[in-house]
Nucleic acid binder design. Structure first.
Length: 422
RNA sequence: GGAGGGAUGGCAGAGUGGACUAUUGCGGCGGUCUUGAAAACCGUUGUGGGCUUGUCCCACCGGGGGUUCGAAUCCCUCUCCCUCCGCCA
């Protein structure tokens, strides 16, 4: 949610910024509702002030002469208040809903562009390995080594499901444990194990709702929504709190399973384990002060890159242009790993500075010093990293001519010392 | 799943229809005293919103609704917490 005052005071600036995102937002409706609301409030508050005063007078008179008349008058004032209150409530609800549909505005350093074709590759690190044989895609390697079982996954749960087996499952578990340890021990994050199911409200706060309703699974009978990312529970961790400034930045890292309907990408990436309805991810999250959030963003990108560096896998960093920013980010980078088998750059991380967009929706604030007014924090999130794709990158980059896979050195302690999967 | 008890300010905890402008204590902040500190004493201490920007007004006692001239207080409902029983990993 962006600041209503900004829309009220600089509507043209807001309209123009949103246009660069290639989306529309109900700015005129918001301006109209905002004015209606303030008019109604002035009226109803004046009436309430009068009623408060007269009611106190009635109390003082203790049912003496004239109180019946006053009571009758206040009954009528009460009716007016009630009628106006209903209008206020309706206008405020419409205003709130409209504000929740406005995307975040891009930071000045974000390149303007119409879609992903205008994203900017910021840097590429690591040389793609030269193979003296034809490297295989993971969907061939997995079944050959009996570490991925596509058929039985589909038998149980349908398309976009698979089973990791034996050392395949172990390798994923090793990646998760190693990445968590890396971020906790080397990068200063605090580990969180969050709920994988949350109440609807949490999805409004982090900005998944209203836009991405079609991509979220939820229980039809109870208010349980399956998270599509640990960003959702992490954003809500400090909802409705005022954090002390000297505790910032707060750095969290969480492993979670993630669930996505993928209705919008039907038919895309159906081969292999790149895009499933269920996947694992290690997610980084920061609550910072406004003045430090862009430094923290660069640090977080570095933390995601460290995973690629330490695994010895070539990667690149891509800066999203305005047309590919999405709903909540003011600035966003993707980290992509090179996968020589399927011959593509795999998006293994997406790192965003949401500035105060989520903080407003979740009322997450901080206080600079005792007595100072609370201010909204800035929030950042980034994958560190997404599992199935990292698993793909490891398998395809570390494959050998006989189809076996060398275990990257950093993972061996987490694999019971196993050096090769064969 | 069954029965009962709860939710009040940073914390503890009083308040059962008008004196609540929410008692009191602790903590925090400022001051007096002191070489300094402690103690004592005095003062102060939340969050939003409105336009007429003021010694101004409105809202907020878990959320929502209702009764009333007037609700922290009475009624309905939801959420969460606690105790006991049952079940369960």
């Amino acid at each position: 949610m962006i600041d209503l005052k900004l829309i009220r005071e600089k509507p043209d600036y807001v309209r123009q910024a949103i246009a660069t995102l290639q989306v529309t937002a109900p700015i005129d409706e918001i301006l109209d509702l905002d004015e209606q609301r303030r008019n109604l409030l002035s009226q109803v508050e004046a009436l309430r002030a009068r009623r408060n005063e007269v009611s106190k007078e009635i109390g003082r008179l203790r049912g003496g002469p004239g109180t019946e008349g006053l009571k009758e008058e206040m009954r009528q004032v009460g009716e007016q208040i009630k009628a106006l209150d209903e209008q206020v409530k309706e206008v405020e609800e419409r205003l709130r809903r409209a504000l929740l549909e406005v995307p975040n505005l891009p930071h000045a350093s974000v390149p303007v562009g119409k879609d992903e074709s205008e994203n900017v590759v910021v840097r590429t690190e690591g040389e793609p390995r030269q193979f003296d044989f034809q490297p295989l895609p993971h969907w061939d390697l997995g079944p050959m080594l009996d570490i991925i079982d596509f058929e039985r996954g589909v038998k149980m749960s349908g398309t976009r499901f698979y089973i990791l087996k034996g050392l395949g499952a172990r390798l994923q578990r090793a990646l998760i444990a190693w990445m968590l340890d890396l971020h906790v021990q080397q990068h200063g994050y605090t580990e969180i194990y969050p709920p994988f199911m949350v109440r609807e409200e949490c999805l409004w706060v982090d900005g998944k709702l209203p836009k991405f309703r079609d991509n979220v699974y939820h229980d039809a009978e109870e208010d349980f929504w399956w998270i599509g990312t640990a960003e959702t529970p992490l954003t809500n961790l400090h909802r409705d709190e005022i954090l002390p400034a000297d505790k910032l930045p707060l750095n969290y890292v969480a492993y979670s399973a993630c669930f996505r309907r993928e209705k919008m990408s039907a038919g895309r990436d159906v081969r292999g384990i790149k895009r499933g309805h269920q996947f694992d991810k290690v997610e980084m999250y920061k609550f910072t002060t406004p003045e430090s959030s862009y430094d923290e963003l660069e640090k977080m990108v570095g933390h995601a890159e460290d995973v690629a560096r330490l695994l010895g896998i070539p990667h690149r960093v891509v800066l999203m242009c305005t047309g590919d920013l999405g709903f909540v980010a003011a600035k966003k980078y993707d980290v992509e790993m090179w996968a020589p088998g399927c011959q593509e750059w795999l998006e293994v991380s997406s790192i965003s500075n949401c500035e105060d967009f989520q903080a407003r929706r979740g009322n997450i604030r901080f206080r600079r010093e005792r007595g100072a007014k609370p201010e909204y924090v800035h929030t950042l999130n980034g994958s560190g990293l997404a599992l199935p794709r990292t698993l793909i990158a490891v398998m395809e980059n570390y494959q050998q001519a006989d189809g076996s896979i060398v275990v990257p050195e950093v993972l061996r302690p987490y694999m019971g010392g196993i050096e090769v999967i064969r």
